[in-house]
Design a protein around this nucleic acid. Structure first.
Ligand code: FES
Ligand code: FES
Lengths: 147, 147
DNA sequence: GTATTAAAAGACCTTTTTGTCTTTTAATAA
DNA sequence: TTATTAAAAGACAAAAAGGTCTTTTAATAC
């Protein structure tokens, strides 16, 4: 469904938020380890997210990443679009150049409903809501088992 | 949602089926043109699909591709899995190595419902059903407009 | 037979995605 | 100030996806 980069970003952001709730600021090494992502790739991804304002970072001893608490909740959709664009949310399931209600492809009706649900999911859930759910129900961030 | 290769394959297969219904056997040039896909790439894709038995082909004058009429309807899911694997149909939306009902990720509940719907769509619709729908309602195969 | 047509095979290339590594910058600790 | 820590910047590289082209094989037309 999502690109690897998006998946790492989602997992990482939720992890950062979770740690922030415990008054901690995880660094790249910790994040990468916890979400089971490659260290340098994780570093690059969060560099970009920091530049785009999705997270704040601090250099030096005690440094790391954090999400500004005064910011409003970040919908997954915003993050995903920033990383991989909005094709998934507006594109045609049959691969036509665009989805057109008035000139629908053979999949338009059925695919449209699924796309709507995807939109609803990523617009409704936020990094913060996922972190909160994780706290409440102790959900999984990584798997020990092989793929 | 799908890879380009999958999209071309879906569009091409439905186009072939549509032409077969008119007792025609389109060749690569015609298929590629009609579905707006690159000629050589289309050729390679249908070569593979022919080798895998999803279509039959004939060489030489009057040659081209056709779907054996005696075969039962081909669910989109079979075709898609043959091209890009089943990750989309069983994978974890959060990017964990696998989806595990008993150790769910923060997206499991919500994403699971969407994934189920995707499964239902591609298992229910077939190349033949899409072709028939296209005939009945004159649906779109290509777009004149730019992306 | 030969010419022509069209798919099969496979080499090759480009772009995007994914991942790695080194050097630089900025913060804190001593 | 100097040492240490950790992110920023950016070059580099491997793998996958997407795409192109030439040569070969097999069918039909003559
Ligand atoms: S036209 Fe294809 S999904 Fe709308
Ligand atoms: S565990 Fe993530 S979708 Fe099921």
């Amino acid at each position: 469904m999502f690109k690897k980069e998006t998946e790492y970003a989602l997992r990482g952001m939720v992890y950062i938020q979770l740690q922030n709730l415990k008054d901690r600021r995880p660094g790249v090494a910790e994040i990468a380890h916890e979400i089971e992502a490659p260290y340098f790739f994780t570093a690059k991804i969060f560099q970009r997210l920091a530049k785009q304002g999705f997270v704040k970072s601090m250099k030096g001893k005690g440094g790391g990443f954090f999400i500004e608490p005064e910011k409003k909740d970040l919908p997954l959709k915003e993050l995903i679009i920033a990383i991989e664009g909005e094709e998934l949310f507006i594109g045609c399931g049959f691969g036509l150049k665009n989805c057109d209600e008035n000139n629908p492809c053979p999949l338009h009706h059925q695919y449209g409903m699924i796309r709507d649900q995807i939109n609803k999911l990523v617009a409704g859930e936020t990094i913060q809501s996922l972190a909160q759910n994780t706290l409440n129900k102790t959900l999984a961030f990584s798997r020990e088992t092989e793929k």
